[in-house]
């Protein structure tokens, strides 16, 4: 039982990070029907910027408490990612807004490759280690180990998701976003500044991505110019699983994917008598994704595409 609890906790922690990144995919898709493949790289840049700031702070002021150093890193990573996403949208996607849908998709892949290589030039090709500055408290719940960091990751993710939900449902900007998602033309006719709403969507997604990036690098103790790729792929799958374009769906999809992966990798070997090993972790997660899509093509919480259009 304690092993099961532990796997569940493992899955929830990773899942909440997936969910945060998935939000960025789903928000952009909801409004532009564009899959922003560069989003994983924005997460990576967030982690890298934060790590650089942390490194500099630790070098110049070694007496600062660790938590403060990390928060400072995060606070600088967020605006950096916001500026980056704003620029990407303006340069790479806006000129193509009226182009066939395939064009911005290819551009997104291009931006993703450019960002990866830029990061490689700036931060080098090595793994950058996350300095051990965070408190390393551990607790035991139902026989499972949970660290302070894990609790912070889950709580902060949930708060961020709640905040985003409030923003979308309860504010003027949120209403403008929902209106733009429903119909860009009509929203424009009603006086919504669509360009600004789209920019805001990218920027908000990037801020959340920066947070997720710092969490990932703190959790695994490292960052790397390539880390955004797999993370982005998983988060994108999570968004699709939950129903892309749907914010609650991204959260649910992320958490589910994390848990499925953890349970899959943890139990698949024993369940199949060693026939399938834990290297089928990803296969297991994507198999569930396919299964869901077969029965619910628009994802768990997604609306039917026919009704939306």
């Amino acid at each position: 039982m304690d092993i099961f609890t532990q796997q569940l906790i493992n899955g929830l922690v990773v899942g909440s990070i997936y969910a945060l990144v998935a939000l960025g995919y789903t928000m952009v898709y909801g409004i532009l029907e564009l899959i922003n493949f560069a989003h994983g790289e924005v997460t990576m840049i967030g982690a890298m910027v934060a790590l650089s700031v942390i490194g500099i702070l630790m070098g110049t002021a070694p007496d600062l408490p660790g938590l403060m150093v990390v928060v400072a890193g995060l606070l600088l990573a967020i605006p950096a990612c916001m500026a980056l996403a704003f620029t990407i949208e303006k340069i790479a996607y806006r000129p193509l807004r009226k182009a066939p849908r395939l064009a911005p998709l290819i551009t997104a892949i291009g931006v993703s490759i450019i960002l990866q290589n830029l990061a490689m030039l700036v931060w080098g090709r090595q793994y950058v280690s996350f300095p051990a500055v965070l408190p390393r408290g551990q607790h035991e719940i139902l026989g499972a180990h949970i660290t302070d960091l894990q609790i912070v990751i889950v709580v902060l993710s949930l708060l961020t998701m709640a905040g985003l939900w409030l923003l979308v449902e309860r504010t003027r900007l949120g209403r403008a976003m929902r209106a733009t998602a429903q119909s860009r033309e009509v929203a424009e006719l009603m006086g919504v500044n669509v360009d600004r709403v789209i920019s805001a969507t990218f920027v908000i997604g990037a801020a959340i991505a920066a947070l997720a990036g710092v969490m990932v690098s703190a959790y695994y103790g490292l960052a790397h110019y390539y880390m955004g790729f797999m993370l982005g792929l998983k988060a994108f799958s999570a968004a699709v699983l939950g129903g892309i374009g749907n914010i609650a769906g991204a959260m649910l999809g992320g958490l589910l994917l994390g848990v499925i992966e953890a349970l899959g990798a943890g139990y698949i070997g024993d369940l199949t008598g060693g026939f399938l090993g834990s290297h089928y972790q990803d296969v297991f997660a994507f198999f569930v994704l396919i299964l869901v899509l077969v029965f619910r093509p628009s994802g768990l919480l997604g609306e039917r595409v026919a009704n939306r259009a």
Binding site: I3, Q6, Q7, N10, G11, V14, Y220, L222, Y226, M227, M230, E261, A262, L263, G264, A265, G266, Y267, G269, D270, G274, G277, S278, H279, Q281
Partner: peptide, 22 residues
């Protein structure tokens, strides 16, 4: 007691390590 697998790009081993702990 256990033979587990991962890949050369992975960073998350909590699932297999938990299973090993068990």
């Amino acid at each position: 007691v256990a033979r587990e697998f991962t890949n050369d790009k992975a960073t998350d081993f909590t699932a297999i390590l938990t299973s090993i702990k068990g």
